[in-house]
Structure formats: C-alpha cells, structure tokens
C-alpha cells in the first residue's frame, strides 16, 4: 500500500472521530480504497469507515492487505498532523508495520513514524449499507452536536422522534426534562444549515446518551450529518466527506422493558 493524503489532518480527523468509541480496528485495503468496521466492547455501537481513492492525492494498493492497529497508538502518531503537511501511508507486502511519512516541503521538514501492526480477530457484522429506513434526516452537524451536548446533560437516555412537523430530540431526567424541535428549513445563504426530512412513517426511538456523545466527536469530518431511522432497528449516524467516503455509526436502540 502507498497512499498519500495531500493534507495529513484528513486522516487525523477520521481516526480521532472514532478512537474513543472502539479500541482497535482492521483497515482492509484494496484497489477500491480503505474500508474498516469495528464494534465497541458492549456491542451497542458499530463504526464503519470508508476512504476511497478519491480522498487521496495518490493511491496505490497492489494486493489486498489488512492493517490491524490499536487506535490509541495511531492517534498518538497523528498528533503530528497539520494542514501544511502531507501524509503517506506505506505498508510492505508482508505487513508487520505501518509507516507514516509526514512531509512539509515548504519547511523542508519530514517526519517518519512506524507503527507495529496487530493481529485482530474481530468478528465482522454483516451490515447492509443499502438498508432501507423509514426516516432520513439531513441536518447541520454543528446543530446536532449542540443539541446532543445540551440534552444529554439531563439524562442517560436520549429520545428521537420524527413526525411530519419535524424532528424532536428529548430527554427526561429525574429532576429536569428537555426538548428540542427542529423543523425543515432551507437557508439559501448557507446550505449547511439546511434541514430536510424524508419519511415513510413516524419513528420514536431512544438511545443511550453516552454513545451519542461519542458519535458527535466525528462532526469535524463534515458540516452535515445524515440520520437514518427505522422502528426497532439500529439507527445510522453518518458523516460524509467532501471527497467521498466517510464515517458511519450504527447504534442499537433502547427498549421499553
């Protein structure tokens, strides 16, 4: 594998977006890019990552390779990333380490790190990326982040309901309750503020607040978030990158006992 990001912070943002959700991950590299999936220890949150060749300045993968890494270690190396530096990932044919080369031609500087790869025997879940959903919402990731931060302070459960009137996020704590209603809008001046809802039926789902606080860490990937809900199935929270690919989170709902 030889894959070069013209801006090293792209890869840093991707890794930082889920490094607190899962501890390790297998990156599966092929001609069609880098794909990964990891599930958290409690088996409630699943992270999917897609970095197609369009995200790179140059991308080459001569034969399919799996790169297993501890995310905490990789994240440490990526602290060196900045917008002035490119980052090339190299993996040899017999992979036992990942080489990261940061280059800042302007400053006549280069940095090289090596990361030991790990053998991860993770069972993969079969996720249908075309999974039909009853409700799809596209909204500002900034707005979503603020709403999650504000409401999750009040309760460890976070409820989402969508009707034709809009999307309602609500929490019911022991001492306080809160509710945020957002209605579809079109902001011609700044389309990242748009909110659109397409739905075939209403939904009402509850999730554990702590996972939502993990998910919003990915908001730096995109100023938009796509939410997909169906009754009694995991929800999908997806951040798509400008150049293709992105990071998605499948979150299992909570049920009335």
């Amino acid at each position: 594998l030889e894959a070069k990001f013209d801006d090293s912070t792209i890869f840093k943002k991707i890794i930082d977006s889920f490094k607190d959700s899962v501890t390790q991950i297998n990156f599966v590299c092929s001609e069609s890019g880098i794909e990964a999936q990891a599930i958290d220890d409690s088996r409630v949150l699943l992270v999917t990552v897609s970095i197609p060749p369009s995200c790179f300045e140059s991308y080459r993968c001569d034969r399919p390779t799996t790169i297993g890494v501890y995310l905490a270690s990789l994240a440490k190396l990526l602290k060196s990333a900045n917008t002035n530096s490119s980052l090339t990932l190299y993996v040899a044919d017999k992979p036992d380490e990942l080489l990261l080369l940061f280059e800042e031609p302007k400053n006549q500087k280069s940095m090289e790190y090596k990361l030991k790869l790990v053998d991860i025997t993770a069972d993969m879940l079969e996720v249908d990326s075309d999974m039909k959903s009853d409700v799809t919402v596209e909204m500002s990731s900034v707005e979503f982040t603020k709403t999650v931060r504000d409401l999750t302070q009040l309760s460890d459960s976070f409820t989402v309901s969508v009707t034709k009137d809009g999307i309602v996020f609500s929490v019911q704590g022991d001492t306080a309750q809160g509710k945020v209603l957002l209605q579809p809008r079109e902001d011609l001046a700044d389309e990242s503020n748009n909110l659109s809802i397409s739905m075939s039926k209403t939904i009402d789902l509850s999730f554990a607040s702590k996972y939502l606080l993990d998910i919003i860490k990915a908001a730096s990937i995109s100023n938009k978030i796509f939410l997909k809900f169906s009754d009694d199935t995991p929800a999908l929270f997806e951040f798509k990158m400008e150049k293709g690919g992105g990071v998605g989170f499948y979150l299992a709902p909570k049920y009335d006992d």
């Binding site: 088996r43 409630v44 993969m124 879940l125 995991p234 499948y250 299992a252 049920y255 009335d256 006992d257």
Partner: peptide, 14 residues
Amino acid sequence: KLRQSTLNAFFNKN
C-alpha cells in the same frame, strides 16, 4: 425503564 439492545440481534455475523 429502558433496556439496552445490542447490535447482534440485528446483524448477521460474518
């Protein structure tokens, strides 16, 4: 009282 489900119940293992 809400009970947390897991993803196993929804996705097949590969």
